[in-house]
Design a protein around this nucleic acid. Structure first.
Lengths: 118, 118
DNA sequence: AAACCAGTTAACCAAATCATTAAATATCTC
DNA sequence: GAGATATTTAATGATTTGGTTAACTGGTTT
């Protein structure tokens, strides 16, 4: 199994998400795709700064870029599922040791969910 | 809900995990608690460097420290579940978005289907 | 008590990181 | 074609980060 490459992908994902501006950007993107300019404004950054963050997010595989159909100047960014899924899996491996505690926690959350109306 | 405080805890967790040496350390700790010296040797770091990483991991809430019962000089580090669970939950919110997009996609297809007939 | 051992802290340095401003690339609109 | 617009890239500078070595703190051993 290619553990080392998987590991370095986790590293890339984590260091990409470590920056608050990039994490904010990802949170915006998980609602829906956004234009680069929208992201810059919403994150309170200059277009240049956001562009650099987006390049890093692209290189880390967290986002994909496409050109808008109507106006080819605008670039639309979208979240890619793979790195997040990989990180989730890494976390699950970590959580295995807490199986007992987590089972209790999940049972608690499940109980809360069950309270929610149909 | 205290989103901002929860957010900054996520930030602390992510930036703590972003460093490869610290991520390696966490991977060692998720098998079992370790002494500081063991962690330094296993991660290929000087005791001083590892000590600084452990301080940061402690401050971020990812690990707890205790003194060994027999030899009070040695410090045993252990993984704490809360920050990892918080990060897992944040990731789940992302997965919810995939489900949401899929739902939207299906709705879109449904709308097309409704247009199609006869 | 003297020497030793586990670990942390302090001071210092090199490398990485992030924002900013200015210039460059396309692309659109008139 | 002449601007305006959306975004990226380059150059620069300040801040942060991670490692090293050397001193320091407690605790142990003999």
């Amino acid at each position: 199994m290619a553990l080392s490459s998987a590991a370095s992908q986790i590293d890339r994902t984590l260091s990409a998400l470590a920056d608050p501006s990039r994490r904010r950007t990802v949170e915006l993107l998980r609602e829906r795709p956004h234009r680069a300019g929208e992201l810059a404004a919403a994150a309170g950054l200059s277009p240049a700064a956001m562009s650099r963050h987006l390049r890093l997010l692209r290189q880390s595989g967290l986002v994909s870029e496409r050109h808008d159909g109507l106006d080819a100047r605008v670039r639309v960014y979208q979240l890619r599922p793979e790195p997040m899924a990989g990180l989730a899996q890494w976390l699950q491996e970590t959580e295995a040791m807490w199986a007992g505690q987590l089972t209790a926690f999940k049972a608690h959350m499940q109980a809360l969910d069950d309270d929610s109306p149909a």
